[in-house]
Simulated assay, not measured.
Amino acid sequence: MSTGLLVQYVVVGLIVLISVLIVFRKLAPKLTNRWLAATSIRYSRPGRAAWVRALGRRLQPKEATGDCSDGCSTCGACGPKPPAAARQGEPMPLEFRPRR
């Protein structure tokens, strides 16, 4: 195997791995936040190297502020948002339902 082909495989593998991580983060945010918090705690322990503790601080997930704009959906008070047409004062689109 040539060196160029090996580099190509490594680059493509990294791109696929990053894509999978991004998709997984979008589809399972609570699970990935738990994993990030556990990893952050493990890396932030005293006695670790300074760069490992810095990485642990960087991996900490964002905390919910309790504000409705942070999108945490922990309290359930935000609820679903109306369509953009209804927010701007325009009539809502028609919904057709089958007869019973």
Rank of each mutant, 00 (worst) to 15 (best):
I41G: 10
P93R: 03
R42E: 12
T74H: 08
A64N: 08
P61G: 04
I41V: 07
A28H: 05
P93A: 06
Q60L: 12
L6R: 01
E63C: 01
V12G: 02
A37I: 00
K30P: 00
W51D: 12
K81D: 07
L59S: 10
E95F: 07
V20I: 15
L59A: 13
G89A: 09
G71R: 02
S44E: 07
R97F: 02
G66W: 10
G66V: 06
N33G: 02
A50S: 13
R34H: 06
E95A: 08
C72F: 03
L21I: 12
T74E: 12
L36T: 03
R45F: 09
R57C: 01
A85F: 04
R45W: 13
E95M: 14
V10R: 06
A37Q: 04
I41D: 10
P98M: 00
A86T: 14
L59E: 02
G89T: 05
R45K: 15
W51T: 08
E90I: 01
D67L: 10
A77Q: 15
P29V: 04
S40Q: 07
A77C: 10
R87H: 00
G76W: 05
L55E: 08
L14R: 14
L6D: 00
S2A: 09
A86L: 14
A86D: 10
C75G: 11
V16N: 08
P46S: 13
L14T: 09
V20W: 11
F24D: 11
R99D: 09
V23P: 00
A50D: 15
S40A: 11
R48Y: 09
A50L: 14
V11E: 04
I22C: 09
Q88D: 07
P98S: 12
R97L: 14
S73N: 09
I15C: 15
K26T: 07
P61E: 03
V12E: 08
T65A: 03
A37T: 01
S44P: 00
R87P: 01
G79E: 05
P46W: 10
L5V: 04
A50K: 15
S44T: 01
R53L: 11
G79Q: 07
P91V: 03
I18Y: 10
C75M: 12
M1Y: 10
R42P: 00
W35N: 02
E95V: 14
S73R: 15
L6Y: 05
L36C: 04
I15R: 01
A28C: 06
P29H: 11
C68D: 09
D70V: 04
G4T: 03
K26F: 12
P29F: 04
L36Y: 01
L94K: 13
L55S: 07
W35Q: 03
S73Y: 15
G76M: 12
M92H: 09
I41L: 05
T65L: 15
L36V: 00
L27D: 01
A84K: 10
A28N: 12
L17S: 06
P98N: 02
M92P: 00
G47L: 03
S69K: 14
Y43D: 06
K81G: 06
L59Q: 05
L21F: 13
V52L: 14
Q8E: 03
K62W: 08
A38R: 15
R34M: 06
